[in-house]
């Protein structure tokens, strides 16, 4: 084990996997000498050189499109999109090409690529640099969607994403880059599709992912002082989703709050809610609650952005409303 930040853990996963497999390479804007807009790729250029750590022009369409082609031709590209908000520019390459080639070709192709990209608000980066758009990706059959909340998960899941034979959208969170934690050294691979209980509790299940896991854990501490033991379940990968783990936890606590940073309508929390309503209706003692952003773009002004974001207080209030 080694103390690493979330950003360092992501870098470590890329490094270890690049050392292990010569077919793995990284491309994206300013990922080379500059080390990435958030410093995530710092040092990789010096170690692997311009042949494998590749600075691209501002051409998201071709960044993802060429990764799809390279993957179809046998390489294992990691393609970075500087902010998840820019994936609109390369959406066709992801949802009509990467996601569907295997199926359309009758199982005769595989597209082992990773689209790495940071999401999230909290830095006054405003409406085009702060979004949480995971539901876009989870709505595409053929694509896997991963959203780690800790440094160790980030490393283990990114390694798994790189080794996976499918297109994987790996969504990092800007607010987590500086978070430190124990991370296994060397090769470390976690399974995709396995939830993790970040805190055990008997009274209520809080399902959340990415940055919101940290908020849910803080809320759980406050709730514990008031006699409510919350279980915090992090699915870690939204597709594939560990439905059993969610149903099992709800079976134990009989109450469910879902916390997502994304806007509410058609968000992934709605999917989890539907799964529990369909398969766990009898397990519930109370209505399912969602804590989400409102259905608006992300505002710039820090006061508005704080009001917009799901907060520890809002989570505590949502939980208490069920008791």
């Amino acid at each position: 084990m080694k103390q690493m930040t979330y950003a360092e853990a992501i870098r470590d996963a890329m490094r270890v996997e690049m050392l292990r497999d010569p077919n793995v390479y990284l491309q994206g804007e300013d990922v080379g000498k500059f080390g990435g807009c958030f410093g995530v790729t710092a040092g990789l250029f010096a170690e692997f050189g311009p042949g494998r750590i590749i600075d691209t022009p501002i051409s998201e369409t071709a960044i993802i499109g060429s990764a799809v082609g390279a993957a179809a031709a046998g390489l294992r590209p990691i393609a970075e999109i500087m902010f998840v908000d820019f994936t609109g520019v390369c959406m066709d390459e992801l949802f009509n090409q990467a996601a569907k080639m295997r199926y359309m070709f009758g199982g005769k192709a595989k597209i082992p690529m990773v689209l790495r990209t940071p999401c999230g608000a909290g830095m006054s980066a405003a409406a085009q640099h702060s979004q949480s758009m995971e539901a876009w990706f989870t709505h595409i059959p053929g694509v896997k969607t991963v959203m780690p909340s800790t440094p160790a998960d980030a490393k283990g899941l990114l390694s798994a994403a790189i080794r996976d034979d499918n297109p994987v959208v790996f969504i990092e969170h800007k607010q987590l880059f500086g978070l430190s934690g124990d991370v296994p050294e060397g090769e470390y691979v976690l399974p995709l599709g396995k939830a993790d209980i970040k805190r055990t509790g008997s009274d209520i299940t809080i399902v959340s992912w990415s940055w919101m896991v940290q908020k849910a854990l803080a809320a759980a501490e406050i709730l514990a002082k008031e006699g409510i033991q919350a279980e915090v379940l992090d699915p870690r990968t939204l597709v594939p989703l560990d439905k059993e783990a969610i149903l099992q936890s709800v079976g134990k606590t009989n109450k469910l709050v879902i916390v997502q940073e994304a806007v509410q309508t058609s968000g992934f929390g709605g999917e989890i809610s539907a799964i529990v309503a369909e398969h766990g209706f009898d397990l519930l003692d109370a209505p399912i609650k969602r804590v989400t952003a409102p259905d608006t773009p992300v505002p710039f002004s820090p006061v508005l952005e704080q009001a917009y974001l799901p907060s520890v207080e809002k989570i505590v209030a949502a939980v208490k409303s069920l008791f």
Binding site: I58, D85, F86, G88, V89, S124, A126, A127, Q128, H129, P297, P299, F300, S301, V303, L304
Partner: peptide, 26 residues
């Protein structure tokens, strides 16, 4: 200009024909 909703990257004044700064390159 944007009631605090846009910030530096999104200032616009449609009456002056300024259709906005932009956070998306191109």
């Amino acid at each position: 200009y944007c009631k605090g909703k846009g910030g530096s990257m999104h200032i616009a004044d449609v009456d002056l024909g300024i259709l906005g700064a932009n956070g998306i390159v191109g």
